[in-house]
Every structure is written in structure tokens, then in C-alpha cells.
């Protein structure tokens, strides 16, 4: 019994540390605070991440049913999408794809074009999947 509690706690510790390490490497929180110039609220943002992770865990383990109106899913979807978009952008940036590609093909001044290609590609791919692809 004690062993189960201990190993559960250890597993949670590892996963939590992993999540925070991942977010730190990608630097999404610093990026957001820098954009909005709200460094002094950084503590709150950290807690938002922690509470979000705990809420998500409870939600996926307990299957609660809240009986809320469906339209609340719209802002949730948007927020979730923005977060995934930030993740995707940060990942692209860490991998250093765009600078090298732009340099190789010699269109450094049109890098925004490449960026828009990727952004629109992501939006299109996602819409295509949910509206059409999942039925096939």
C-alpha cells in the first residue's frame, strides 16, 4: 500500500518535472511575458501552468461531468489552440529550420513568406483533419 502511494508520487513527480522542463526549454512563458510586458505577474503564470496540469490530470482520471453550456468550448478551444500554436512555433524555432532554409535559398528578405506558409499550413491541416479526415 505504502509502496503504491510512493511509486505513484514518484511517477507524478517525474512527469511534472518533465512538463516544466519542456516548457522551460521552449520558453513560452518568457515569450508571453515579454510580449505583454508583465514580468511582475510571472509567478501567477507559473501557478496557472501548475493548476492547469493538475486540473487536467483530475479531469482525465475522474471523468467528472459539469453540465455546462456548450458554447464555453469555443474560448477553451481557442486558448488551447493558441497554446499548441505557441508550442509548434517554439519547436520550429528551436530546431532552427527557418534561418537555414532562408539562407540556403537566398530569400532572407522574404522570410515572412515562409513563416506564413507554415502558419497557414498548420491551420489548414488542422481544419482539414477535424472536418474531413476523421470521417474517412
Amino acid at each position: 500500500m505504502l509502496f503504491v502511494i510512493l511509486s505513484g508520487f514518484a511517477g507524478g513527480l517525474a512527469v511534472g518535472a518533465g512538463l516544466v522542463a519542456f516548457l522551460t526549454v521552449l520558453g513560452i512563458l518568457p515569450r508571453l511575458t515579454q510580449l505583454s510586458k508583465t514580468i511582475k505577474f510571472l509567478k501567477w503564470y507559473e501557478w496557472a501552468v501548475v493548476l492547469g496540469a493538475v486540473t487536467g490530470t483530475i479531469g482525465s482520471l475522474q471523468d467528472p461531468i459539469l453540465h455546462l453550456p456548450a458554447f464555453l468550448l469555443i474560448p477553451m478551444g481557442l486558448a488551447g489552440g493558441v497554446f499548441v500554436g505557441l508550442l509548434a512555433a517554439a519547436l520550429t524555432e528551436v530546431l532552427n529550420v527557418l534561418p537555414i532554409l532562408a539562407k540556403r535559398v537566398g530569400i532572407q528578405d522574404k522570410i515572412i513568406l515562409l513563416l506564413m506558409g507554415i502558419v497557414l499550413g498548420k491551420v489548414f491541416g488542422s481544419l482539414f483533419q477535424w472536418i474531413y479526415f476523421v470521417d474517412r
Binding site: 469555443i74 478551444g77 489552440g81 499548441v84 505557441l86 477535424w130
Partner: peptide, 29 residues
């Protein structure tokens, strides 16, 4: 979880989500 009903294609969530991805990337860059 949110509504208590089952929906095979929760487009209400998915379409804002899809546009959110684009918005997030633009925000980052």
C-alpha cells in the same frame, strides 16, 4: 466533461482550436 453529451465531432471546440494554432504561432513570432 463539459456538457454531459457525447459528440463524435466536437467541431465547436475544434474549429476555434485550429485558428488558435495559427494565432499562437503568429503571436510567438
Amino acid at each position: 466533461i463539459m456538457t454531459g453529451k457525447y459528440e463524435a465531432k466536437p467541431l465547436l471546440f475544434q474549429i476555434p482550436y485550429s485558428f488558435g494554432i495559427g494565432l499562437g504561432m503568429i503571436l510567438f513570432f
